[in-house]
Design a protein around this nucleic acid. Structure first.
Length: 844
RNA sequence: GCGAGAAUGGCGGAAUGGCAGACGCGCCGGACUUAGGAUCCGGUGGGGCAACCCGUGGGGGUUCGAAUCCCCCUUCUCGCACCA
């Protein structure tokens, strides 16, 4: 057994070959169609790869190798999202520089990725923290400033005290920072903002042209949150010149507005409040400010709170005086921070009316008692002199036009999307290419001043008075500019910045004049297939689309959208074992006894569950351990064999054994394990019918599977082919050639090795991709199911395409069918050619 | 609460109107060898062990025929959640 299948020998050999020959370099070739396939690049964490990473990389690699074999010029790049908080925290903890930590991690990641046999073009590897990369991130930011898309503003922000930094809306969920779970609070700070809202309409519209999962598109639509309505001006009664605007999607219900509400943070609250109500109002506002948004929502679900200001507004429709309240169910961050309350036709206003005993006036007739319940459906306007009798849509149009004529309102499209908070109080990020003049004005640094480098520091923590870490770099932060003593910006960009455009840099990674050359972008763009986790549905994918559109306007890119087709892989979970006290055990410490799991040493019972892989749950599976035991080809195949790519699925190392056995069987089909030479059975034999059919089924399933990203079922076909070929005394070389060609994207090492041993021309990785022959898929003898009354009673062998009457005759002649037809009359004969006969009977 | 998706053997899954459970794991039996986290062969939805019956979360419907289409319900997953 000297020559058994040994991935540990053959895999490094081919990896070295690919590396030495730079086999997977992407080369622009106008004579070839291009294909750009991209996986979301990793953050190089200290933990290294886990088996979740290779899932999307393998899928991407299969598509890339397949396209190469089909003659495409393929761009399949990889890089590192190297800025960000974890390295900075590790740096503080370990007293080292984040760059040093990241560089180490990148070396580890690179070695691990190379060991998995991915066909990345390593010459194009990018690192977002490299000055030659972030120089262009800063360049793009300059364009944003020039176009008025970046601005400084005092804004209410989420502040994370534990991390001493602000966070974007998308990074905060349920009142905590999604990455770390630290609680956040509201603060008002002067921060850089990006005007993503001015792209809201285009971001929404262009979704239609994308081949993306519907749920991701829907998430982006919800996040952008377009709604049509009207702005309506309410004058404050007895206060000449004082007024406020509200946004409403239901201007048709204006007559039903029986009070108005200002958000606690609304600028007019103080001005309108009457002296006798001042104490109560300021008390309420102060309490509201202290509570987080989350606390407000939770509290408001039970009972709405609010306080009357003592002031009144004038309903522009009927001139009635209606009270102005302050309540925290109105958000200062949406619309104008003020609303008109129509309790009869809005559930929140209805709840508020019931709590405070405010009047409810029906203005849309919906056949329900609006005193008991808000009616939000369609109906006819009532109690509304200007629009009585009109249906909702017509009423909206009429009243909006009426308001517009009088300068009291106008039609308006409102978005939930808000401008993107773009500063962070961090060390390990891109510095802003701006300085502040002594008078506080902003000065954009010229292009030739880029990159603005990150200053060297040895303490990366924020200062005691909560200044960002860069404030410690005193000789960096003060700079002479045209004889002015200016100050640099001490904030840095968020981690998202680098990932907003990396897919462009891959097209031209060493360009020192531009982020990307126009001709190269014209060739490679857009990304044809982008694979990554769904967790980026509204963060990275929305930000990158926004930047891309800006760059489209700048003239740097020629497509409106960066990623034509998107595919989300499902997360890989793993079994974890926890005892009654909540302590987790490593799978190696646990064994199964009957139906229960126990700790090997102590015999104590543990609960097995399937969870997200994490260090604390002790269930992280290291892909290199799998590679050491079974090889990279087996790992790659198992990752795909587990189930549909988009599905969440649990890792089971025992399953790798199955594909490993398959690869061994394949090996033995070709290689004599005793001699190391070819098996004597292998030769230039004609391909027998049954084997040819299995082969062409495999080719078809693999081709269609890769096109539609259904990568699991082709492996079953490959197994069937090998099982069928095993043990034959004649194994046709020609069949093996086609089989290895379709296996190659999945298991490139063994495919290449056997290709060479068979003496086939060229390399498996170069194809060509075989075509399947439909004629090979049909069988001469088919198995036909015979049913009586839809129940299976017999199966019979019949020649393919046997005429219908003969087939029915044979079916009726089958002894078991005869038995079931006894005493019955056949009233209908249903025949599905080559598959099934169903005899419908009734008592005779 | 609203929206989307899902539910199939002991497990991962296959079949998208035509023989449910392909392929693999696990399990059972055997071979080789003798202790391997190895390999090979056979079996494996449940009941009867034959005929046959039951079976794709539950209930109803359409159809000659339903895992697949329609209606109702249950459970789970994901997303959104005072957005006026």
């Amino acid at each position: 057994m000297q020559h058994r299948y040994d991935p540990a020998t053959i895999e490094p050999r081919w990896q070295a070959y690919w590396k030495a020959h730079r086999s997977f370099r992407a080369i622009e070739d106008p004579s070839k169609p291009k294909y750009y396939v991209l996986c979301m690049f990793p953050y190089p964490s200290g933990a290294g790869l886990h088996v979740g990473h290779p899932e999307s990389y393998t899928a991407v690699d299969i598509v890339a190798r397949y396209r190469r074999q089909r003659g495409y010029a393929v761009l399949n790049p990889i890089g590192f999202d190297a800025f960000g908080l974890p390295a900075e925290r590790a740096a503080v903890r370990e007293g080292r520089h984040p760059r040093e930590i990241i560089e180490e991690n990148i070396v580890t990641f690179t070695r691990q990725l190379e060991r998995l046999g991915f066909s990345f073009d390593w010459d194009r590897c990018v690192d977002t923290s490299d000055p030659e990369y972030y120089r262009w991130t800063q360049w793009i930011f300059r364009k944003m400033v020039e176009r008025g898309l970046a601005y400084l503003a005092k804004v209410p922000v989420y502040w994370c005290p534990a991390q001493k930094t602000v966070l974007a809306n998308e990074e905060v969920q349920d009142g905590v920072y999604v990455e770390t779970g630290d609680p956040v609070e509201r603060r008002t700070m002067r921060q850089w903002m990006l005007r993503i809202t001015s792209y809201a309409e285009r971001l929404l519209e262009d979704l239609e042209s994308l081949d993306w999962p519907e749920n991701v598109k829907e998430m982006q639509r919800n996040w952008i949150g377009r709604s049509e309505g009207a702005m309506v001006t309410f004058a404050v009664a007895d206060a000449p010149g004082l007024s406020f605007e509200v946004f409403t999607t239901r201007p048709d219900t204006l007559y039903g507005a029986t009070w108005c509400v200002l958000a606690p943070e609304h600028p007019l609250v103080e001005a309108v409040t009457t002296p006798e109500r001042a104490a109560e109002v300021s008390d309420y506002v102060a309490r509201a400010r202290q509570r987080s948004d989350m606390e407000r929502v939770v509290a408001a679900e039970k009972e709405k709170t609010g306080v009357f200001t003592g002031a009144f507004a004038v309903n522009p429709a009927n001139g009635e005086r209606i009270p102005i309240w302050v309540a925290d169910y109105v958000l200062v961050t949406y619309g104008t921070g003020a609303i008109m309350a129509v309790p009869a036709h809005d559930e929140r206003d209805h709840a508020f009316a019931r709590t405070f005993g405010l009047p409810i006036v029906e203005v849309v007739s919906g056949g329900r008692d609006v005193q008991a319940e808000a009616w939000t459906g369609d109906g006819v306007a009532v109690n509304s002199p200007l629009i009585d009798g009109l249906a909702v849509e017509a009423a909206k149009a009429r009243i909006t036009a009426w308001l517009e004529e009088r300068g009291l309102g106008r039609a308006k499209v409102q978005y939930k999307l808000r401008d993107w908070l773009f500063s962070r109080q961090r060390y390990w990020g891109e510095p802003f290419p701006v300085v502040f003049e002594p008078d506080g004005s902003i000065r954009l640094l010229p292009e030739d001043a880029l990159p603005v480098p990150i200053p060297e520091l040895d303490d990366f923590r924020p200062t005691e008075d909560c200044q960002p870490p860069l404030a410690r770099a005193t000789d960096w932060i003060e700079v002479d500019w045209d004889g002015h003593r200016c100050l640099r910006e001490s904030n840095t960009m968020p981690q998202w910045a680098g990932s907003c455009w990396y897919y462009l840099r891959y097209m031209d990674p060493h360009n020192d004049r531009l982020p990307v050359d126009a001709a190269k972008e014209a060739y490679w763009g857009p990304v044809d297939l982008y694979i990554g986790g769904v967790e980026h549905a509204v963060t990275h994918l929305l930000y990158a689309r926004f930047w891309h559109k800006v760059l489209y306007d700048v003239g740097l890119v020629h497509t409106k959208e960066p990623f034509q087709r998107l595919f989300n892989q499902g997360m890989i979970l793993a079994f974890s074992y926890r005892d009654a006290a909540g302590k987790y055990y490593h799978p190696d410490e646990v064994e199964q006894r009957g139906d229960v799991f126990v700790v090997r040493k102590t015999g104590a019972p543990v609960e097995a569950q399937i969870e997200k892989m994490s260090k604390s749950k002790r269930n992280v599976v290291d892909p290199l351990e799998i590679v050491d035991r079974y090889g990279a080809d087996a790992l790659r195949m198992y990752e795909m064999f587990m189930g549909p790519l988009e599905q969440v699925k649990p890792w089971q190392t025992s399953g790798v054994q199955g594909v490993h056995r398959f690869l061994q069987r394949l090996w033995r089909l070709v290689v004599d394990e005793e001699t190391g030479g070819l098996k004597p059975a292998v030769g230039d034999h004609p391909i027998p019918r049954d084997l040819g059919r299995a082969l062409h089924l495999t080719i078809r399933e693999t081709t269609e599977g890769i096109e539609t990203i259904r990568l699991n079922t082709p492996i079953s076909r490959m197994m069937e082919f090998v099982n069928l070929a095993t043990g034959r005394d004649r194994v046709p070389r020609e069949a093996l050639r086609a089989f290895l060609a379709v296996l190659s994207p999945y298991a490139p090492h063994i495919a290449e090795e056997l290709w060479e041993r068979l003496g086939l021309p060229g390399r498996a990785a170069d194809g060509p991709w075989p075509a399947w022959d439909p004629a090979m898929l049909v069988e001469d003898l088919v198995e036909v199911a015979v049913q009586v009354q839809g129940r299976l009673r017999a199966t019979l062998q019949a020649p393919r395409d046997l005429p219908r009457p003969e087939l029915v005759e044979r079916a009726k002649a089958h002894p078991n069918v005869v038995r079931h037809l006894e005493g019955k009359v056949v009233v209908r004969e249903i025949v599905v050619p080559n598959r099934l006969v169903n005899l419908v009977v009734r008592p005779g």
